[in-house]
Amino acid sequence: MSEARTFDGRRGAVLVVEDEPLIRMEAVDFLEGEGFTVVEARSADDGLAVLRARADIRVLFTDIQVPGTLDGIALAWIAAREFGNIRLLVVSGRAAPGPGELPHGAVFLAKPYNASTVVGHVQDAIRPG
């Protein structure tokens, strides 16, 4: 289940993977509020389908604990392997993953996270339109 909301899709999009509707909604809102194109998915499996279907995803913003066969970490690894130039933002309410558990360059953010920090990382990867 994914749905794209494009304000300006020419410069790349952000994929938000989060199963909790309220939190996902808020993430989408504040990223869209900053002018980014945001695609949302409620599971890593759905997220992977989006990644493979769309070439414009520049940032993967994913929760670790999501339903389905993959979790957020697995999705991050697949994204790093298959789409090298993608910025990885991984969040969780649980303890931070140990060294080496995340792909090189991935950023971990603890829940509840600071929206401006997320925006900062996304801005690094995408220049908003």
């Binding site: 909790e20 309220l22 939190i23 909604m25 808020e26 809102d29 504040f30 604990q65 969780s92 309410g93 649980r94 303890a95 603890a110 829940k111 509840p112 996270y113 929206a115």
Partner: peptide, 20 residues
């Protein structure tokens, strides 16, 4: 761990509600 996750998730929901 589960409690931590739940609390953090709830805080994230509160955060979302407040921001919305």
């Amino acid at each position: 761990d589960e409690l931590q996750h739940r609390v953090k998730n709830t805080l994230a929901m509160v955060q979302a509600i407040v921001r919305q």
